[in-house]
């Protein structure tokens, strides 16, 4: 792939505490990562590995302690640049309740473009389009607190789409949802990437979600352990396990049965087992 959208170079980030008693915590250590335009990248790791911190650095909410984050040639650092970066990189957070601003769905979706100073008619068009793209158009006049978790999260996603950012970072968007809500949100995310060509960075600890990405970045204790296609990453079952991470169920099954590595889909797994049993499906 071609154009670099986000360029992270030798990035270190330390949480300084106001309280002199507590030691500063180094959340990220010397990270190098490039996100290309149109890509779907999953960042994998368990709690406290620094993946959320990385996300907040990528859209200039935090400033790097050392190293640099450059978005489309704009280095993060000053407040003004931060604003420019956030027009390119949007973000969806874990808890849908804490990112919905307005008391009506469509007003909330309009919040972003309103902040950008877009023309009222154009906002209306973008809001309708964004709501349709996440299948929430029919509920546009509802109150957010009466929606389900998955629906709220889709409203939050529409809010970012309406800003027409080139890249959206999802910070564990499905962590607080039930399975059906998770499916809805994942479908919406994949559609954004495939149909609208938006660059996606999906931060997650669900292996099944990471499998759907073009590239998987695995993190532990503030460093990147490995980055490759899902197939390659999940071939390294032992490496992942040594860092306390799971692999998708089908991968694990095939690995443990000695049927080969890097199996990421259920179908593939079924084929392998059928082949082993020597029978047809």
């Amino acid at each position: 792939m071609q154009e670099k959208l986000i360029e992270v170079k030798n990035l270190t980030y330390v949480y300084e505490s106001d309280d002199p008693e507590t030691k500063p915590v180094t959340a990220l250590r010397d990270i190098n990562l490039d996100i290309y335009k149109g890509e779907f990248v999953a960042v994998l790791g368990h709690n406290g590995c620094g993946k959320s911190t990385l996300a907040k650095l990528c859209n200039a909410i935090y400033e790097p302690t050392e190293g640099s984050v450059t978005v489309k040639g704009i280095p993060s650092g000053t407040e003004e640049d931060g604003d420019r970066i956030r027009r390119i990189v949007g973000m969806v957070f874990q808890n849908p309740d804490n990112q919905i601003v307005a008391t009506i769905v469509e007003d909330d979706v309009a919040f972003g473009p309103e902040n950008l100073g877009v023309e009222p008619k154009e906002i209306r068009r973008r809001v309708d389009e964004a709501l349709k793209s996440v299948n929430m158009y029919d509920l546009r006049e509802r109150e957010p607190h009466k929606l389900s978790g998955g629906q709220k999260q889709r409203v939050a996603i529409a809010g970012v789409i309406a800003m027409q950012t080139e890249c959206i970072i999802f910070d564990e968007p499905t962590a607080m949802l039930d399975p059906s809500g998770r499916r809805e949100v994942m479908q919406a995310i994949q559609r954004l990437n495939k149909e609208m060509g938006i660059t996606i960075v999906l931060i997650t600890h669900f292996m099944d979600e990471a499998v759907k990405a073009d590239r998987v970045v695995v993190m532990d204790k503030g460093s990147i352990i490995t980055e490759a296609t899902p197939k390659e990453v999940f071939s390294q079952v032992d490496l992942l396990r040594s860092h306390g991470l799971d692999v998708p169920q089908s991968t694990e099954l095939c690995h443990d049965l000695g049927l080969g590595e890097g199996v990421t889909s259920t179908e593939e797994c079924v084929d392998k087992i059928c082949a082993l049993l020597g029978g047809a499906k």
Binding site: N98, G112, V127, M163
Partner: peptide, 18 residues
């Protein structure tokens, strides 16, 4: 955080959909 991410910088330069 979420509001900052959505480029909220206060009332200046804001438009309204409705």
């Amino acid at each position: 955080f979420a509001m900052t991410c959505r480029c909220y910088t206060g009332g200046e330069g804001r438009t309204r959909m409705k």
